[in-house]
Design a protein around this nucleic acid. Sequence first.
DNA 1: CGACTTTGACCAGCGC
DNA 2: GCGCTGGTCAAAGTCG
Length: 212
Amino acid sequence: MEGNRGVGVSRSYLLEVPPLSSPLTMHQMEFGQAEENLQGLGFMVPSHGISFPASTAGLPFDNPTAVNSEKPTSKPAWSNEEVGTSDPKVGNDQNSSARDGVNSWWKSASSEKSKVKVRRKMREPRFCFQTRSDVDVLDDGYKWRKYGQKVVKNSLHPRSYYRCTHSNCRVKKRVERLSEDCRMVITTYEGRHTHSPCDDANTSEHEYFNSF
DNA sequence: CGACTTTGACCAGCGC
DNA sequence: GCGCTGGTCAAAGTCG
């Protein structure tokens, strides 16, 4: 067992997401290890119709040294954010997988009859936000399709799994509520969008968040 | 009818 | 090696 290899990016921010049209306040942010993968960071901020363009330079909170990377002592489920590459051969998977259009760590084995799948860990950029919101699914300007829900340990609330519906975009996000405070929503993004937010999203709010 | 959600099953990773 | 857990698949159901 190799545990935390520290490969990839894990970030979490804590945001307070007021109801729509109310100001948004960031009151904490927390970064995991940020190593070689910064260039691959896709960035979005989940809030009510708020998003960032996927660009490294556009990181709104680019002062990682100001925050600690320790996991919360209470260790909520969302704290265990780790991105790693378990297989050295997958080192350049961001390129290789993008080439074949399968940016997933699920890969059908040669014997499709057995339906055996090989899970491969990707070094996808990942970071999470803690937001305060009454709604589970924050409108970040992208369109998401739910593909799973799971009750996780140490959490009273189920975790929902979403995938960007845009073709060729394999960004995923997980949404769950804190058991200690059901108004707190933990949103974890994984991957980088290959497209712009949907036009039908509320652009004014996107602009608002872009001001960071 | 297409897109999306729900939900149970499956599988790999990880800790012991 | 085994069991637990998280993440994903995919069929069925729901909705517009």
